[in-house]
Design a protein around this nucleic acid. Structure first.
Lengths: 203, 203
DNA sequence: CTGCCCTCATGACAAACGTCACCTCCATTT
DNA sequence: AAATGGAGGTGACGTTTGTCATGAGGGCAG
């Protein structure tokens, strides 16, 4: 019997090695390559044509969400499983839009990883049920692209003036967008708004 | 030859399982217990009297730093290795104060974990060299306790008034403390100050 | 005992922030 | 052709922030 070929992508080297070790303990799974960022992962998928790519979301070079979309377009025979810390509805939605077949949280038992890989390889979908539910009733991302850009920078501690310069807008406009975002999110100032948006995965 | 007995503590179940799998691949190391939080870890150490405890810092119930101090006081035969994402000088300092023998970053190669466990078990110290250097020249925590409390809440998006109510202070006083903290950290507003302090592990 | 630092406070002022009404321009939808 | 809605803008207004000077009390080391 041929083993399921898997590529693992994760930016924390220690966790990457550990996840690989975990998958290698399964008799029917083989880790054929490891990647420390999105770009490496894409190359590795191209070279190895694995059955499954297991990837983190937050990585340098290329985010796991972008990676998933690239893999879907260029190597459709490889199914993607997103493995992430973040139970953010926005992330799940974007992951599924990007063609990911699985979405698994890092705080699930480690046995579920191998299971998810097997299920996805068989063509099934694997999505954390709690998260799927939350994604449903938390509604879609209410922010426009501009609001997102601006709110992000505000969350970094930048002033309205700095943000305006950076995005070639007037300061008043920046304040307007922030005001809109604050009211959409039910926050009482920019900092709280940024926190809420981050928690939902909208930022 | 008797294997090195290790307890692993980590709040993300998937990562916990993976780290255990990683250590189990070493012929001279045995994982005798796993813990999902600080309290569990303390119990497990009491029961198993392992040679080494490998623990994350940010965990529910009891932080890895508190845990390290408890283990030093109650089970001194067990050496503690901190394994964390955060290259924060403040964390390193507090970890060493708490009697940790090792401080390892999750973005180091996975091979280093087993090495660190072996070294620490032999009575050596293992500290990430880059981080140790940074901890040295980044100086000690400049914030007072009050400044920390206030800056923390400001970073959560609370207004000066809210913080004042919470801590039973006048609003002016809160603004004074924030102003102090902002200038100490060389920031230009409360949000940036909170970000910087967090990055240093002072919050 | 005398600095020195932390805590907490007040008052005042300029700058930044949040809100609102109201405007143009432009692309998409109906 | 009209309606919608996003993007960008202006001006005005009140509130919040950040700064500074200044002071009162308390603890603690030299």
């Amino acid at each position: 019997m041929k083993k399921i070929q898997v590529v693992v992508a994760e930016d924390q080297a220690m966790v990457l090695g550990a996840l690989a070790a975990l998958l290698e303990t399964e008799p029917d799974i083989a880790v054929c390559a490891r990647a420390a960022n999105g770009r490496e992962a894409l190359t590795a998928v191209g070279k190895n044509k694995p059955d499954v790519l297991v990837t983190d979301i937050e990585m340098p070079e290329m985010t796991g969400l972008t990676l998933a979309a690239e893999v879907r377009d260029r190597y459709p025979q490889t199914r993607v499983v997103i493995l992430t810390t973040f139970a953010r509805p926005g992330y799940l939605r974007r992951a599924l839009d990007a063609g990911a077949k699985g979405y698994l949280l890092k705080d699930r038992p480690s046995a579920e990883l191998a299971d998810a890989v097997r299920r996805v390889q068989r063509g099934l979908r694997v999505v954390d049920p709690d998260l799927a539910l939350e994604a449903w009733d938390s509604g879609p991302d209410p922010l426009t692209e501009r609001e997102r850009q601006i709110l992000w920078r505000a969350g970094e501690g930048k002033s309205s003036g700095e943000i305006a310069d950076e995005l070639h807008l007037s300061e008043g406009t920046v304040r307007n967008y922030l005001s809109e975002a604050i009211s959409k999110l039910g926050a009482s100032n920019r900092v709280e708004a940024a926190r809420l948006a981050r928690a939902k995965g909208w930022l």
